[in-house]
Design a protein around this nucleic acid. Structure first.
Length: 208
DNA sequence: TAGTTGATCGTCT
DNA sequence: GACGATCAACTAA
């Protein structure tokens, strides 16, 4: 049996995550997030993110200091902070910066690239029909992305340089295609324009 | 298509 | 005891 050549999945280095949070947030656009579970591989292109910045950001979970819940945020950059919200949803953040800082980038939406059938299974919607709208709603929103990629509490603290979840380079998104707005679904810190997304991408969760 | 509401629970006050 | 970095089902039109 002959092995077909596969594109090499070389994860981003730790140094990528240790840079300033807003830079990391912007640079995450266009990157591929890869979820590997057994033989199954799910890949999505990151199209929408929001930065949350510890002690200077009242909207951040880390604003009031370290607790049991947000401890991962205060760890070293390049780990996954997964939290539970609204009684039923999980959201994923990519921790940035050095240990003790408490900053992270929320993944709000990805464009599904590989493993669509598995994502569809994970979403398990009652009325799921495979039309254009449903395709878009598959991964458009932080909790939808988590569900589609099978990310849950157990993944909190996962090292993005490990085997289970990691990022690889993708498109270099030109700055003319990047939009920057205030963040969504928060009450405090709304003046900060720390949401970044790719212009005209169908999977962006909220019209810019 | 827009607007409203019910679901559901860990975390912090 | 209140509420949240949300979503999906439902309603009206």
């Amino acid at each position: 049996m002959k092995r077909t050549a596969r594109p090499r999945l070389k994860p981003l280095q730790r140094s990528f995550y240790l840079r300033p949070t807003l830079k990391v947030a912007r640079d995450l656009l266009g990157k591929r997030i890869v979820r590997r579970r057994g033989r199954k591989i799910l890949i999505g292109k990151i199209v929408e993110v929001e930065a949350y910045r510890g002690s200077i950001d009242p909207a951040s979970h880390a604003y009031r200091g370290k607790t049991k819940r947000n401890a991962v945020m205060f760890g070293e950059g390049g780990h996954l902070y997964v939290y539970f919200t609204y009684g039923m949803h999980f959201c994923s953040n990519i921790v940035t910066g050095k240990k003790g800082i408490g900053e992270a980038v929320l993944i709000r939406a990805v464009e599904p690239l590989a493993g669509l059938e598995e994502m569809k299974k994970n979403r398990n919607l009652k009325t799921f029909r495979w039309n254009k709208k449903m395709l878009q709603e598959l991964t458009s929103g932080p909790a939808r992305f988590c569900r589609a990629f099978g990310i849950a509490r157990i993944d909190n603290g996962a090292d993005l340089l490990g085997q289970s979840i990691f990022l690889v380079p993708g498109d270099r998104v030109p700055s003319r295609l990047i939009r920057r707005t205030s963040r969504i679904g928060i009450r405090n810190g709304t003046e900060k324009r720390w949401r970044f997304f790719i212009k005209d991408n169908r999977w962006v969760s909220h019209a810019g």
